[in-house]
């Protein structure tokens, strides 16, 4: 068990290392990499010597460019390990980490709420559909779920925008005022723990949250329906019924716990998708989160900011993966055995 977790932990660190290295290779070692390009540009545009241009690049990228490449690599690794991604190129003097710290909570808030809502609703609906497989509405709900799971999230966002922010339904105004469709909060509220601000934040976040929710909802419904259906058919659930247990006991202790197992591991994977989608969603709603920031950094070729955000995104996903694995071990006592079987097979 401990060995299993250590293995997973090592895998997590390895993944982060791979991404870090990938970024280093992209920035420093590819032909015509941004550092070399910057130096050439400085030399051509300002007519300065190579030495001076290198010096400028050095302070900009916070790399010791005259050191051998492996030393640069090592110092890059240690910087990353200390969460030091240097300073933003576009807003000089501002730490990348402080930009991330300012933007990340907004993305975590919307993505987290969306994922949580979709999870809770999806799991409940999915389990219900599994039990009502013989009713007429089951194919309708399942069909809608597979429709939702197929549509790209940004198209869902467009539909939601049309429904909530464009059509007026003869009322003369839209459901959500147009001013609340963009940005994180309105100009007139003071940030802090006051009701006006919180309501305003919720209103601004509503459409992104709904988008994330709907884009994941279908998958949760389908997964949970499948998982519950197969759990319902297992001998232990059938026997539990024959043993005369109360329906509530069966649902919670027998069906629920077992049906949730395969879903839990899916949670982390979904998070990866949803974070990937946040780039487009935040662009659509001009929501100042980390996805939009990554996009701006990419468009402005702000390499330190790009690498910082991308690493944080990857780390978040990998960390969630790891947490899901731990949760899985806690929920399923068979994990040790399964491992063994897999290794032998």
């Amino acid at each position: 068990m401990v060995a299993y977790l250590v293995k997973k932990l090592l895998k997590m660190l390895f993944t982060i290392w791979v991404v870090t290295t990938l970024i280093f290779v992209l920035i420093r070692m590819m032909p015509s990499n941004p550092v070399d390009r910057y130096i050439e540009e400085q030399m051509v545009v300002y007519g300065i010597g190579y030495e001076e241009a290198t010096l400028r690049a050095q302070s900009l990228f916070s790399m010791e460019l005259d050191e051998p490449i492996w030393k640069q690599y090592l110092s890059f690794l240690s910087d990353v390990a200390n969460f030091d991604f240097g300073q933003s190129l576009l807003s000089p003097g501002v730490d990348v980490m402080s930009i991330i710290a300012a933007r990340l909570p907004w993305t975590l808030f919307t993505v987290g709420m969306g994922l949580l809502l979709s999870f809770i609703i999806g799991i409940s609906v999915g389990a219900l559909m599994a039990m009502k497989r013989d009713r007429w509405y089951e194919p309708v709900v399942s069909g809608f779920a597979s429709f939702l799971s197929a549509i790209p999230d940004f198209l869902i966002a467009i539909f939601l925008l049309l429904i909530f922010g464009v059509f007026t339904y003869g009322m003369g105004h839209t459901i959500i005022p147009i001013t609340s469709l963009r940005g994180n909060y309105s100009m007139f509220v003071t940030p802090g723990w006051n009701a006006g601000f919180i309501l305003d934040v919720l209103l601004h976040g509503l459409l992104p949250i709904l988008t994330y929710m709907f884009s994941q909802l279908g998958i949760w419904i389908l997964l949970m329906k499948g998982s519950t259906t197969s759990t319902l058919n297992t001998d232990y659930v059938q026997i539990a019924k024959v043993r005369g247990l109360r329906q509530s006991t069966i649902l919670v202790n027998y069906v629920g716990r077992n049906a949730m197992l395969p879903i839990v591991t899916e949670f982390a994977m979904r998070l990866g998708f949803i974070i990937g989608g946040s780039l487009i969603i935040e662009q659509l709603f001009v929501y100042q989160g980390i996805g939009l920031e990554l996009l701006n950094a990419t468009n402005g070729r702000d390499y330190p900011l790009m690498q910082g955000i991308f690493l944080i995104m990857t780390s978040a996903i990998v960390l969630c993966n790891f947490l899901a694995e731990i949760l899985y071990v806690v929920l399923d006592p068979r994990i040790k055995l399964k491992k063994k079987v897999r290794e032998n097979g």
Binding site: T15, V19, G272, G276, M313, N321
Partner: peptide
């Protein structure tokens, strides 16, 4: 698989 594809 745990590297987010679209951001990449």
């Amino acid at each position: 698989l745990s590297i987010p594809r679209f951001p990449l």
